[in-house]
Design a protein around this nucleic acid. Sequence first.
DNA 1: CCTATTATTTAGTATTTTTAAATAATGGAA
DNA 2: TTCCATTATTTAAAAATACTAAATAATAGG
Lengths: 304, 304
Amino acid sequence: MERAPIHGIEVFLTIVREGSMRAAAEVLGVGAPAVSLQLKALEDRLGVDLLFRTTRSIEMTDAGRVLFEAADPAYRDMVHAVRKSQESAKSTTGTLRLSLSRGAYITAVAPVLAKFRAENPGITLDISWNEELVDILREGFHAGIRLGDILAPDMLAVRVTGPVPSAFFASPEYLKEQGKPKHPRDLLDHHCIRYRQPTSKAIREWWVTEKGQETRIDPPSRLVFDTVIGVIQAAREGHGIGWSMRTTMEEHLRSGELETILEPYARPLPPFYIYYPDQNKRVECLRLFVDCLKQQQRQENAKR
Amino acid sequence: MERAPIHGIEVFLTIVREGSMRAAAEVLGVGAPAVSLQLKALEDRLGVDLLFRTTRSIEMTDAGRVLFEAADPAYRDMVHAVRKSQESAKSTTGTLRLSLSRGAYITAVAPVLAKFRAENPGITLDISWNEELVDILREGFHAGIRLGDILAPDMLAVRVTGPVPSAFFASPEYLKEQGKPKHPRDLLDHHCIRYRQPTSKAIREWWVTEKGQETRIDPPSRLVFDTVIGVIQAAREGHGIGWSMRTTMEEHLRSGELETILEPYARPLPPFYIYYPDQNKRVECLRLFVDCLKQQQRQENAKR
DNA sequence: CCTATTATTTAGTATTTTTAAATAATGGAA
DNA sequence: TTCCATTATTTAAAAATACTAAATAATAGG
């Protein structure tokens, strides 16, 4: 790389500011000859003499004065730019852009949101709620939170919940009409409301536990949504049986609009992970957020 | 010298501007690995990631964007500062500060002044007229013009005249009163007006030629000036005989206020030299001026 | 004139930078 | 999908550069 035109200017500026090579050498943490040689190299590179020098004193030439007056502020600007950049990464203020699903929000984020916001008043959380596994990098997110089984590769992933309880659910009206299934195999004769993963376009199988055996079933799918909200909505309207994370429908269970069935067979979903590109580990806002999630996770483990 | 904080930023800026490492490498005239390694070194030095990179594309991180936005203008400023400095030295506009004696002015500068000013309308000549051999460097002059025998050491010196004709002179009144000396040894019985060199504080000896023999004489000095003008003024007032460069009194010879004596014995003074610190050879204005003087000198040689 | 201080030169050493070649990774095309 | 073209990275070796110590030179001030 042919020496950049500005290479070595720091040495020149330091000499001028300090008034002598010796002092400049001290400031720069090198020997005096290094400074002398650097300056000469710069002069040769520019084809211009910058300093008159006797063995006792230093004085700028016309060209040197021109250079110093223009370059010194610019140099300071650059140093300042570097510092700003470093601080922007280390800063505990700024915006953290997250991509997460509704389920991830309810399960992983909602429990820590109040605490995190209180502890980090400078951080703006910019949350995109969507079901798809977006390309974090391309879309400009710092991180995403997804279930462990649909993680993108080549990302750092940190588990932020335990396994996620699931539930089969339907409206009381539907169950009264169609009867309550007693065993997963009964589902084959029911209206099942299914969820299609928007990214993979696959219909998500239902996870079932039976006597310690974990299996998946694939009941007939006459009604399919690509959002969990749609599934729940349809269930509330009595269109059939759905399966999803328990937390996503909890409020409807409480209100009596929905009730759970097949409780012993509902197998938990894999845990949620927050994932982000390797590079982002240096973004302080993200680090703080991840720490907060981890801490919550530890507390929940301790409770049990 | 611990790497300057801004070291390597040019590489980063180039990558961003060009949109890829490969293109940046081409612009910088190096191989792609060099660019990649430089960037990584910069990131490590700053402790901040600047670019997301896949093998196919480059995207700035938040910190990278901050750095680019602030550093790019500053970097351009610096490059501009360098260019300005180079141009200031190369410029054919600007100010040329000269230190010279009255004799030097009349003998060396006056003959070329009109031509030089016509050819270089952009150059301001800032001339300090004084008899002392000033410290060019300390006083901020680009060059001085002095007689060859009183040159400072460690300067570049360029001869700009031939040997300088001298003359013994006095007013017609004085000569009528005291008689015209016929031989230098007669001067010992005359009132001689002498010149003290301001720098060395020495009284300048009078240079004499006799039958090819060059000698110096030191006639009694009852009246001494430290400017040639003073010597001439006193001579015009009839106070005695002076000796100096012929050109400095030419106008008074023409007007009849002074007349020359001992013509065959008047030994020429050494030539004038323009001298300047080694460093100034790169100042374009000075180069032009020296060239102009040299050319004049060549023309005069040719005429003879 | 000497001394203390500073800059420069030199030659050798250490460090950094660069390169070439191989490897890895990606996005688009077949 | 698999392959291809393109790009980034890793590696080890080489080249280039920067640094130092010691000697030298130069100057201002006592």
